[in-house]
């Protein structure tokens, strides 16, 4: 048997290359568009503020906000707040996301677990997360734990629910293949359920990160001494409108940045998904 040729990695076939080149072109075009639209909005805003179309006391020109942004960035103040928020976001994301992923996939695989847990999720999901902030403050106090818990709860729902859907959407034939090849429970999880549900899980993670940003800002407005939410709240109290916009803008930037990073991550993790 001569199998040496087959054992070494082969060059991708011409067909495959052509497909990749085509999708690469399309991808860059859409990336360009997604940068252009926020820039256009900023330009419009600047013009309106300068021409007095909008009240510059409430809607200061982006150039003025940029100036404040720059000085706060140079003094290190902005980074201090951003870092505090990011750290809470990360902790909350791990604390909420990992159990959500495990539970969601397990629920997708087990109809028993689904029957047990689904009503609980359905009942607790519609409760506005911001409405349980006082409860979290009672339980966890004014410190870091209440903020992390807030993000964790926010991230939990979209990740868990999308993981369940993701597993349920996996064609049954793949589970039959797993059984036919005598895959253990863990092997079914690792080789079928997790990769098969990954497109949905990524959607859940994206929603979770967005919701996490919303909730971190809210939770930092109550009893925090750092973070972007605190920055915004504090700016309101001292009526520093430019600083308030810096906070808002930084959150927007983070959202934009995370979306981009997660899209790249998704392309890397789910190379098999046709788009």
């Amino acid at each position: 048997m001569s199998v040496e040729g087959a054992a070494t990695p082969e060059l991708p076939a011409p067909v495959v290359e052509a497909l990749d080149a085509e999708s690469l072109l399309g991808r860059h075009f859409y990336e360009l568009l997604s940068v252009a639209s926020p820039l256009a909005l900023l330009g419009l805003w600047e013009a309106s503020a300068r021409l007095g179309v909008v009240d510059a006391r409430f809607f200061p020109a982006p150039s003025g906000v940029a100036e404040t942004f720059w000085s706060m960035a140079r003094s290190g103040e902005l980074w201090l707040h951003t870092e505090a928020s990011l750290l809470r976001l990360l902790c909350g994301f791990l604390v909420g996301g990992i159990p959500a992923l495990a539970l969601g996939i397990a629920m997708g695989l087990s109809s028993l677990l689904r029957a047990l847990v689904e009503p609980l999720i359905a009942a607790t999901y519609p409760i506005p997360k911001s409405a349980i902030m006082p409860l979290l403050l009672l339980v966890f106090g004014l410190g870091e734990a209440s903020k992390v818990a807030m993000v964790a709860i926010g991230v939990f729902f979209p990740v868990a629910m999308n993981a369940v859907t993701g597993v349920l959407e996996i064609n049954r034939i793949y589970l039959d293949v797993g059984r036919n090849y005598r895959a253990s429970r863990w092997q079914v999880f690792r080789t079928i359920a997790l990769p098969g549900a990954l497109p949905f899980i990524m959607t859940g993670i994206k929603l979770g990160v967005g919701l996490g940003l919303v909730l971190i800002a809210i939770s930092e407005m109550l009893g925090a001494k750092s973070g972007l939410g605190y920055l915004i709240w504090n700016a309101w109290e001292i009526l520093d409108v430019n600083a308030m916009y810096v906070g808002l803008f930084t959150i927007a930037l983070l959202g934009f940045f995370f979306t981009h990073v997660l899209n790249v991550l998704e392309r890397w993790l789910v190379p098999w998904k046709t788009r």
Binding site: V3, G5, A6, P9, E10, P12, A13, V16, W272, T274
Partner: peptide
């Protein structure tokens, strides 16, 4: 695994497509 899989990919004419994904 390398030997066996290499053999059957060769027998099915798939050696060239070893790194391709099914949607391709």
């Amino acid at each position: 695994i390398r030997e066996v899989v290499g053999h059957y990919l060769e027998r099915t004419g798939l050696t060239r497509f070893a790194d391709a994904y099914p949607h391709q």
